[in-house]
Design a binder for these strands. Structure first.
Lengths: 157, 157
DNA sequence: ATCCTAAATGCATATTTATGCATCATGAAT
DNA sequence: ATTCATGATGCATAAATATGCATTTAGGAT
């Protein structure tokens, strides 16, 4: 039983494809070695808060909450600022502690919240420190990958 | 036979309400004097490129392209928001992560601190997130019970 | 007016998604 | 270890949504 892994795969598939039905998505997952039913997939999608939005090519496709708000925070100038604002990322237990330049923490936390990553339960920002709490079962590597994705330009960890 | 007028009414209804099914929407429209069937409504919604997105209260609701981002906060009256301000509670390890509407975290954390529960070591509040750290050995269920007590009527998870 | 065409709609039904219930797995409490 | 509670899942089916086809409607063109 590996629900977390399956959910992450579902996220990946939705992000990288235009999927217009659960049947279609299920087929992909089965092809990738997962074995379960549409009923479970329906529940998975609800967990991920996936929605269906209009698409020119395929009528309607699934999307994840993060994909919508994403571009709001993804201004190029902002990216540079954020990258430079981050001083370090360290891990402890299922948390990451991000040190930033004074005053940058809340802005960067906003950015991290913006991607609405399944792996991240939430963030709390002070003035120059952010605490990122990972969902249970998420590995340090996975968390780190999500964070570096959220913060373009990469980080020297 | 005034499709345009009907479409505008549909837009108005979707913008001002949280509608979770065509049946529900159709009922409203019929009550407003329109007379047609679900089949037509389905076609109307496709025309408007309406989509369905996740909603905390009603599961999934219809939305129109463009007003995607403001859906979470629309239609809330700010009076009973202390409880309504809570969007979700998740658990990881011996912590709970409470997501709130922006700005409400500290107020709600204050309330949680107020009950001085033995089970809770402390809370940290950002702008829209609260981290609740449980005493060692406290089960997730116990923590959840304490929190639901601290926040009457606030949580359904 | 008559005819023609394209859009709009209803009806019946297909397709898609959600869910009640039973079962099995997992982990905590005793 | 045993009992209990909780969560995850499948199965069967309900609920929700989309659609093929026939019919009607609204404008034009003659």
């Amino acid at each position: 039983m590996n629900r977390t892994k399956r959910l992450l795969e579902i996220i990946r598939l939705i992000k990288n494809n235009r999927i217009s039905s659960q049947e279609e998505l299920l087929e992909m997952l089965v092809k990738n070695g997962y074995n379960f039913t549409q009923a479970t997939l329906s529940r998975d999608l609800r967990l991920l808060k996936a929605g269906k939005i209009s698409d020119n090519e395929k009528g309607y496709i699934y999307m994840l909450p993060g994909e919508i708000t994403d571009n709001i925070f993804s201004g190029e100038n902002l990216d540079d600022t954020i990258t430079r604002g981050i001083l370090s990322i360290d891990y402890s237990g299922n948390m990451a502690v991000i040190k930033t330049m004074p005053g940058f923490a809340s802005g960067i936390a906003l950015r991290i919240d913006g991607i609405k990553a399944f792996e991240i339960l939430g963030t709390i920002a002070g003035d120059d420190t952010i605490l990122v709490i990972a969902r249970e079962g998420i590995s340090r590597q996975a968390l780190h990958r999500v964070l570096t994705t959220a913060i373009p330009g990469g980080v020297k960890s």
